[in-house]
Design a protein around this nucleic acid. Structure first.
Lengths: 131, 131
DNA sequence: GCTTGACCTGGAGCGCGCTCCAGATCGCAG
DNA sequence: CTGCGATCTGGAGCGCGCTCCAGGTCAAGC
């Protein structure tokens, strides 16, 4: 069963080593196995969890909710709570995407206006100083 | 020509009064007209600018770029720079939306898995303790 | 004229999510 | 056995984007 050093786990998950430690301290990631000397060895499962945490972070889930999810994950009997948490988050993500798309449309309109304005100005210059 | 008090401008723009002052100090919003007594009176134009600033902030443009846009807007001859800035931002917004949608798909898959898992477990319980 | 509440300024403080540091320890290569 | 780079811990620090505060001024209503 393969395991990974902190450096490898960081590279594979995209989190920094410091962030990995921070998540573990915060109870976001359950305690990682150690060598006799006390160094961390990340399991495949840890990597899987990290990958999903990345998904949650990238969709803007705040640390406090990540922690709650982490705590719930320690208890097998909390499936429905976890589902509720994720469903709620999915709603938030959908709202964020909608919001972003609306504002993107606005941004594009502004750009259109700017392009028109630039065209108008260069046309004016052409008339004042033809050729 | 209508003008607005700080409180009105805040309500209409969705920024707090403190944020409005902060933006002005930072050169993000050009200096707002004052009464003889020194109180701010926001013009329609100011409100329009604020509304667009809201669009930029809501799409994640950092303060430093907002400031740059604000500074460029003081000079009539910087249309093309402003367009370049906004175009670059539009690319970033598109990337953010794409990223978000990808992760949203991932989140939905996980939810599907959880739902299946819950169904499996309740089926198991039903078999162990029928009726 | 007085009260009262909105507004003024400069500057300190805050919440989030890391990030960095010092000083010690581990463990592999040679 | 030695050297040295990776890792350990607890705790301080940081960058961003505001947010709050003290102490004072302004202006509309009575």
């Amino acid at each position: 069963m393969t395991t990974y050093s902190p450096a490898e786990a960081a590279r594979l998950s995209g989190f920094s080593i410091d962030t990995l430690r921070y998540y573990e301290r915060e109870g976001i990631l359950s305690p990682v196995a150690r060598t006799v000397g006390g160094r961390r060895r990340y399991s495949e499962d840890d990597l899987g969890r990290l990958s999903f945490l990345r998904c949650l972070r990238d969709t803007g889930m705040p640390i406090a909710q990540l922690r709650r999810y982490g705590e719930l994950s320690l208890d097998e009997s909390t499936l429905s709570e976890r589902v509720a948490l994720l469903e709620e988050h999915e709603v938030a993500v959908r709202a964020a995407i909608d919001e972003l798309r609306g504002q993107q449309a606005r941004l594009r309109e502004k750009l259109e206006w700017y392009r028109g304005e630039m065209a108008r100005r260069s046309a004016l210059v052409a008339r004042v100083a033809p050729e």
